[in-house]
Simulated assay, not measured.
Amino acid sequence: MTQIQAAVSDEAKSIEEMLTASGYSKTAIAYYINKPHMGHISDADIASNMTGTCGDTMGITIRMNDGIIEDAKYQVMGCAGAISAAMAVVDLIKGKDLDYARSIDDGTVFKVLQEIPVKKHHCIQLAVKTLHKALDAHNLKQSA
C-alpha cells in the first residue's frame, strides 16, 4: 500500500467512526463515502434542481428507456445526510417505471438508510422532493 492509499484509507476510517458516533448506519455511511450515483447525465430525459431550507442543493438527472428509469444521478452540495439520501433514492428508482418513482416517500428512503440522525431527516425530504419536482416537470412537458 502506498502512502497516499494509506492516508485515504485512514481518512475513510476516521469519517466512518465520526459518522457512526453521530448516528448514521453502515448503509448510510457507505453511500456517503462511495457516492455510487453522484454525477450528471448529459443526455438526460428528466432533470431538476432544488435547494433545501438548510441550504443543501441537489440536482437530479434521469435517463429513460422504454418507460423504465435506465439511469439516474444526483449532484449534491450538502452534508452526509443529503448525499446518502440522494444515493438511496437512485437505488430505489433505477430499473423502475415513473409511477413507482412517484410512490417513493421519506419513509421508503429511511428504510433503505436504516438510520441517520434525527436532525438530518430533512435531507431525506429534500432528496424525495427533488425527485418529485423532476417527475412533475416531466409530466407537464409530456402533457403540453
Rank of each mutant, 00 (worst) to 15 (best):
G52T: 03
K73Y: 03
S84F: 12
E70V: 00
D43Y: 00
R63W: 02
D43I: 01
V76P: 06
M77Q: 10
A85Q: 07
S84H: 11
K73T: 01
M64R: 03
M38A: 15
I41N: 04
A44K: 03
A80L: 01
S84N: 08
D66Q: 13
S48F: 13
T57K: 15
Y74A: 05
I62G: 01
T51Q: 13
G55K: 06
C79R: 02
G67E: 14
M64E: 11
D56F: 02
D66F: 08
C54W: 04
S48M: 09
T61Q: 12
H40Q: 11
M58T: 00
H40D: 14
A44Y: 01
T61E: 08
A85T: 03
Q75N: 13
M87D: 05
T51N: 04
G67M: 13
A47I: 02
S42C: 00
V76L: 09
G55I: 01
Y74W: 12
N49S: 15
M38V: 14
E70F: 01
A85L: 09
V89S: 11
A80G: 01
K73V: 02
A86I: 01
I83L: 10
T61K: 10
M77C: 12
N49I: 09
Y74R: 10
T61I: 11
Q75G: 07
T57D: 08
Y74I: 05
A82P: 13
A86G: 15
T57R: 15
D43T: 09
M77E: 06
T51D: 10
G59I: 08
V89D: 03
A82D: 06
T57M: 14
D66E: 15
G55N: 08
M87P: 11
G52W: 04
D66C: 05
C79A: 00
I83C: 06
Y74C: 08
N65A: 14
S84G: 06
R63N: 09
V76N: 05
H40I: 13
T61G: 12
T53W: 08
K73R: 14
S84K: 11
M58R: 07
A85M: 12
D56Y: 09
G39I: 05
I62E: 03
C79P: 09
M50D: 11
V89Q: 05
A85W: 05
C79E: 06
I68H: 03
E70D: 11
A44P: 05
V89T: 03
N49D: 15
I69N: 09
D43F: 00
E70H: 03
A82R: 09
D45H: 12
T53V: 12
I46V: 08
V89L: 13
D56A: 00
N65F: 06
D45Q: 04
